[in-house]
Amino acid sequence: MSNQEVTNQTDAPVSQQEKMTTLRPLVSIVESDTGFTLTAEIPGVPKENVEVNVENDTLTLSGAIKMETPEGMEATYAEVRDVCYKRAFTLSRELDASKIQASQANGVLTLNIPKAEHAQPRKIEVQIG
């Protein structure tokens, strides 16, 4: 398995402004023979706020945090300071973006990105003759 064929872990350029005001979700990316599994942590984002977009070769995940806070609450200390998660990935060509499956549970978004049929591994018989 060559490393060159995968460009998925490189983030697409995000503008400086966006970097400051959005949270970058932590991810794990695992490749298998049949595709990629991308897991992103987006705690606080309800299902209806999760957005997964593919445009050209760029996969973008985003989601706005929605948390219930009692009336009149004042923040006294915050490690999570922004309200939106956003992160983008470049998909490599052998992936079939139309068949991406997404699911979300307990603040974790899981994407299954299958490889196109022609990119699936197959055994090639070597003929000697």
Partner: peptide
Amino acid sequence: PSINLGSTSTSVEVYAFIPGV
């Protein structure tokens, strides 16, 4: 996990971000 704290006149609110736990 990351933690946020908030307070109101009657309570203290702790938010812990624990995705997948």
